[in-house]
């Protein structure tokens, strides 16, 4: 059983959804980012999405764009990101870590070699915004062979004709992007999200996590009532940066927010 399967099984037994937290690797520097990562499970994260910085984050709003710029200025590299996950694995063997970002750095690494190196570092899944099912066959088989889940994105524009194709090859979980838009901007209504999750569940047994536009513990709780996981990214990244800008500790600020979000998610179905 993969770490993701084990985690979702455990949460199902507790009758609750996963809190999936996104942070950008190397933001604002490697040491701070490692401290953020290492403390996420204790703060309440069930699954960790670890952002891979890219110069041209076309699907991201300002919060994550700036995070990527800070990370790259601090020397972010894919190799460094994998090393940080390997470091995390020394203290946590159970919390799933999913890499999220764009395809070109992996293309440059070489898909086959990257899948092997990611698995070795302790990566459980991969989310690539710009590798849709139409092009994914150049990477997905290598991920499968290494036991790394390739997580497809479904969106409000994935119509009835496309949705089966999108979720058909899913493993790990399906990531439902709840709005047509970029990260950290508008939020979808909970009714729309519930409808979409129902449509996806009709096509797959893989858990469905929902992201984009979820900012508060209340919104996370609403999503947690209907989906298998709520993904929060931009607001976590923003809280860290705001703290740093004020001279406070971004690690403490991020873990505090994750604690509040976890409370929201854990109380959602009670």
């Amino acid at each position: 059983m993969s770490r993701l399967q084990a985690r979702f099984a455990k949460l199902a037994a507790e009758n609750r959804a996963a809190l999936v937290t996104y942070v950008m690797s190397f933001d604002p520097d490697r040491a701070t980012s490692q401290a953020v990562l290492n403390g996420l499970p204790a703060a309440g994260a069930d699954i960790i999405e670890f952002g891979m910085a890219f110069t041209d984050p076309m699907a991201d709003g300002p919060a994550i764009q700036y995070a990527a710029q800070r990370a790259l200025a601090a020397g972010a590299s894919l190799r460094g990101t994998l090393e940080m996950i390997a470091e995390f694995r020394k203290i946590d063997a159970e919390t799933p870590v999913v890499l999220m970002g764009y395809y070109n750095p992996i293309h440059a690494w070489g898909p086959e070699k990257f899948a092997a190196d990611a698995a070795k570092a302790g990566v459980d899944g991969l989310i690539l915004v710009d590798l849709p099912p139409e092009e994914a066959d150049e990477l997905v088989p290598f991920c499968r062979a290494q036991g790394v889940d390739f997580i497809f994105l479904a969106t409000p524009t994935s119509d009835e004709a496309r949705l089966p194709r999108v979720v058909g090859g899913a493993s790990g979980f399906v990531y439902y992007v709840s709005i047509a838009g970029i990260t950290g901007t508008a939020s979808a209504s909970s009714d729309t999200i519930a409808d979409a999750v129902t449509r996806i569940r009709a096509l797959t047994d893989v858990p469905v996590c929902v992201g984009f536009g979820i900012k508060t513990a209340e919104q996370a709780a609403e999503v947690a009532r209907v989906a298998d996981g709520a993904v929060i990214g931009s607001s976590i990244v923003t809280v860290g940066e705001d703290a740093r800008a004020k001279g406070a500790d971004p690690v403490t600020a991020i873990h505090a927010l994750v604690g509040q979000l976890a409370e929201g998610v854990r109380g959602a179905r009670k």
Partner: peptide, 12 residues
């Protein structure tokens, strides 16, 4: 070439 775009754009 190809179509390396976000799923949101793919149907369009």
């Amino acid at each position: 070439g190809g179509r390396f775009v976000a799923e949101t754009l793919m149907p369009l």
